[in-house]
Design a binder for these strands. Structure first.
Length: 363
DNA sequence: CGTGTTTGACCGGCGC
DNA sequence: GCGCCGGTCAAACACG
């Protein structure tokens, strides 16, 4: 299921004309191009300020409404997903599970960036494999084990585009990680690094980091489990062992080129896979969305794309203010990317200018 | 000297 | 039973 079907970040220009947008430029035009007296100019400035305030209030309320809508959509989505998971678990409890044996091998394919970023349906199937392969009629213990694993294990996949020359398998986030192993896997010549959360002794969270075989500038990190402690620190540059779960990923993106959708989500049995394209043309550098990179590449290769798959409800991070702000920014990006929007905007502006010129006989 | 990383050895699951 | 494979362990090593 495409997330874009739930939260469409593209806006219909034919939907609701924007009177204020027409109003404000008018004021600006008056103040800029007419030879009014100073008093009138001051009046115009005041009016303009008032209009701007009005515009600000209107946008804020609109923003609020959109956020509420998004919340409702996410809630509905989570409810639907839970229902589907319940249905699938009951179905799988009856059905013969022929794939349980190949869990490990299947899980490997999550390191395929194509699956992560473009073919999320496959990815969902893969990660869902964990939850759907939960039972066998013969092996109750195995069934129980897998079910417990399903409940306990929270799998989060984060794919991050980094500088190709950066050979370190480091994903910066607010947690402390200790590397305990490295292995070259069969289907990927790039070594896979194994990390454990080292902040709390009993923290069960593990992390696997491996470069993508398709694009070695992409690092795929898989987080397993949930932290039983708060985030240790803010992400920092030079904190080589700091990594984070996707929901806490703080990002600074440098302009990059990508063709993926700004924001899309697919549904699988274990949870939503959200591909957030943080390589949008505009650098996102606001508040919590900031990550300090010690190495800044002129190629802009530090842009980050996150793909998260979690067995918990997607609302956990969808409800986070950072996520919502990010969604809003993605909507704005979607707008600015939309050529039809640009054309309509240009037409509206030029039309206004022409109209004004006709009225005043100036230009 | 304490902490983190590296890396070869080991273990357990799975397919044949 | 054997080999393959992913995951983990732990001694050696590096670094501040």
């Amino acid at each position: 299921m495409e997330f874009t079907s739930l939260v469409d970040t593209s806006l219909d220009l034919s939907f609701r004309p924007r009177p204020v947008l027409e109003k404000v430029p008018k004021q600006e035009v008056q103040s800029d191009f007419t030879g009014l007296s100073r008093e009138r100019e001051n009046m115009g400035v005041k009016n303009e300020a008032g209009d701007l305030l009005e515009e600000l209030n209107r946008v804020s309320s609109e923003n609020k409404k959109l956020t509420e809508m998004l919340t409702v959509v996410c809630e509905n989505y989570n409810a639907l997903r839970n229902q589907m998971m319940e249905y699938m678990s009951t179905q799988n409890g009856v059905a013969e599970d022929s794939s349980a044996g190949s869990r490990k091998r299947k899980a490997e394919s999550i390191f395929n960036p194509v699956n992560n970023n473009n073919n999320n349906n496959n990815n969902m199937d893969v990660v869902h494999g964990r939850s759907s392969e939960s039972s066998s009629s013969d092996e109750e213990s195995c069934c129980k084990k897998l079910r417990e694993e399903h409940i306990k294990a929270k799998v989060t996949i984060v794919s991050m585009k980094t500088d190709a020359s950066d050979t370190s398998l480091i994903v910066k986030d607010g947690y402390q990680w200790r590397k305990y192993g490295q292995k070259v896997t069969r289907d990927n010549p790039c070594p896979r690094a194994y990390f454990r959360c080292s902040f709390a002794p009993g923290c069960p969270v593990k992390k696997k980091v491996q470069r993508s075989i398709e694009d070695q500038s992409i690092v795929v990190a898989t987080y397993e489990g949930e932290h039983n402690h708060p985030q240790t620190s803010k992400p920092e540059s030079g904190a080589s062992t700091n990594t984070s779960t996707a929901s806490r990923l703080n990002v600074t993106t440098i302009a990059g080129t990508t063709t993926s959708l700004p924001c899309s989500t697919t549904l699988n049995s274990s949870g939503p896979t959200i591909t957030l394209d943080l390589t949008a043309p505009k650098t996102v550098e606001k508040g919590d969305m900031k990550m300090n990179h010690s190495t800044t590449s002129p190629t802009g290769a530090n842009s980050i794309r996150t793909t998260t798959t979690t067995t918990t409800t997607g609302g956990e991070y969808q409800n986070r203010p950072e996520f919502q702000q990010f969604l809003i920014e993605q909507m704005a990006t979607s707008l600015t990317k939309d050529p039809s929007f640009k054309a309509a905007l240009a037409a509206a502006i030029s039309g206004k200018i022409l109209q004004h010129n006709n009225q005043t006989g100036r230009w």
